[in-house]
Nucleic acid binder design. Structure first.
Length: 437
RNA sequence: CGGGGCGUAGCUCAGCCUGGUAGAGCGCUUGCUUUGGGAGCAUGAUGUCGUUGGUUCGAAUCCAGUCGCCCCGACCA
């Protein structure tokens, strides 16, 4: 992509409404714009990142055996009346009437709808277990939206739902999602720690919040410091194997949110206890028959008897992750995108646009990288060098490839690694080889 | 929902107290000079001062209402 043609409205100064780094940087880097309190538009550069985060979530869900579907944002109120949550959910539920005065709502979550779909589609225990998920926009009419996309009213969430015949099966499903979550967040360069959590209105007795430690987090959390260095399940983890050992290991040390914090328990950890702020990026729930019994989600078991299913649900805040990653990875100059979610891998900087030699060199390099399948943002604008350097640092692409007349005269270009600031001079061929490796 | 703050140019903000023809910096236009970390000089354009009403000869400025945004708290799959 040529920057001269790319819609990238960056800001030189900090917008007044933003209070935390991720919000400020997302606005300054031209990734989002606010439409209303807690509601945002995603501009081209921001959307690229959102899609990458979403894709990592998707890949890990698929690996764990979950199947993707897509449910609508608008739901009929009937289902929610049936589950009892139409009243219970309160004013956070955005209620809508259509032209026929039918009651609808903008979904804040999808337990009712997935339950309805599943109960109509499954009749026998032989079709279990099953985990279904979708990645869809949600709306919760928060009393106080804040911190940009960290607590928005409209937000993108991945929600999975598991259906099993008995508790043992449900626990296996829970473990699959638990392991998938560990891997998902790690792939984005985040250290997310599973912590015992309240189940809230969802109910049930087994739940973990996955928390990324960050100064600007909304939750107070406590955990053993060894979580920060604990080994993440590898690429070749088999979801058909018993995952309980991994679950045990990752829940063996103390880790709790403020709600579950008990001083006497925490004190046992002693000097290894970390007390910090955290961002909740995911939560897992096992809630048994809470929905399946009232909503008649049954199958026929081996003995021919009707059995209500054991269910769990598992959420990841995709748009919130966007903010969490920036909170975890930025400096005074701007964002530092982890390679896995960067909007482009390489920022190609032409230090003297309009000059034949640098233009030609850049055009050639740009073509070579594109042909090799590398995502490149080419700053071909007629701007001063300083403007280009600062802009590139701000948007935080992992690699900068700097082409200037001075270097070309010596047959070299410069590669800068955004994360470390390390700069290396090398030949054009070597640079292309390095970036396409 | 309680408490506080703020709405003036695309952005950051001054002006308001003490009413009298709308301002600065950055950005944008045009030209010249510059050109390896947010250039210099010159030039030009840009506003229902959030909105409605009131007071006044006269309101960005004073008063009342209203809408929006932000922060603290409560709340939070």
């Amino acid at each position: 992509m040529r920057l001269s043609k790319y819609f990238l409205p960056t800001l030189k100064e900090n917008p007044a409404e933003a209070q935390i780094p991720s919000h400020t940087l997302m606005l300054r880097a031209g990734m989002i714009r606010q439409s209303a309190s807690g509601i945002y538009s995603w501009l081209p550069l921001g959307l690229r990142v959102l899609r990458k985060i979403e894709q990592i979530v998707r890949e890990e869900q698929d690996k764990a055996g979950a199947q993707e579907l897509l449910m609508p944002t608008i739901q009929p109120a009937d289902l929610w009346i049936e589950s009892g949550r139409h009243d219970a959910y309160g004013p956070e539920l955005l209620r809508i009437k259509d032209r026929h005065s039918r009651d609808l709502l903008y979904g804040p979550t999808n337990e009712e709808m997935i339950t309805d779909i599943f109960r109509n589609g499954v009749k026998s225990y032989k079709e279990l277990p099953s985990i279904l998920y979708h990645i869809q926009w949600k709306f919760r009419d928060e009393v106080r939206p804040r911190f940009g996309v960290m607590r928005g009213r409209e937000f993108l969430m991945k929600d999975s739902y598991s259906f099993d015949l008995d508790y043992e099966g449900a626990k296996r499903s829970y473990n699959k999602m638990f392991v998938a979550y560990l891997r998902t967040f790690a792939r984005m360069g985040l250290k997310a720690i599973p912590m015992r959590a309240e189940t809230g209105p969802i109910g049930g007795d087994l739940s973990h919040e996955f928390i990324v430690l960050a100064e600007t987090g909304e939750s107070q959390v406590y955990c053993h410091k060894d979580y920060l260095t604990m080994e993440i399940p590898s690429d070749d983890v088999s979801y058909e194997d018993d995952l309980e050992p991994i679950f045990e290991k990752w829940t063996s040390l103390y880790a709790a949110t403020e709600d579950k914090y008990v001083k006497e328990e925490a004190d046992v950890v002693g000097n290894d206890l970390i007390s910090a702020r955290g961002i909740e990026v995911g939560q897992t729930f096992y809630f048994g028959k809470k929905y399946s019994e009232p909503m008649n989600v049954n199958v026929t078991d081996k003995e021919g008897k009707k059995v209500a299913l054991e269910m769990g649900s598992y959420g990841i805040g995709v748009s919130r992750l966007f903010g969490a990653i920036i909170e975890a990875s930025h400096d005074d100059s701007g964002i530092i995108w982890p390679d896995s979610v960067a909007p482009f891998k390489v920022g190609l900087i032409n230090l003297k646009s309009g000059s034949d030699d640098t233009d030609k060199a850049c055009d050639d390099i740009y073509a070579a990288l594109i042909n090799a399948g590398v995502e490149v943002l080419y700053d071909d604008r007629k701007e001063r060098a300083g403007v280009k350097f600062n802009n590139m640092d701000l948007i935080g692409l992992p690699w900068q490839l700097v082409i200037g007349p001075r270097g070309l005269a010596n047959g070299v270009v410069e590669i800068k690694r955004r994360a470390t600031g390390e700069k290396t001079e090398m030949s054009i061929e070597a640079a292309i080889a390095k970036l396409t490796a």
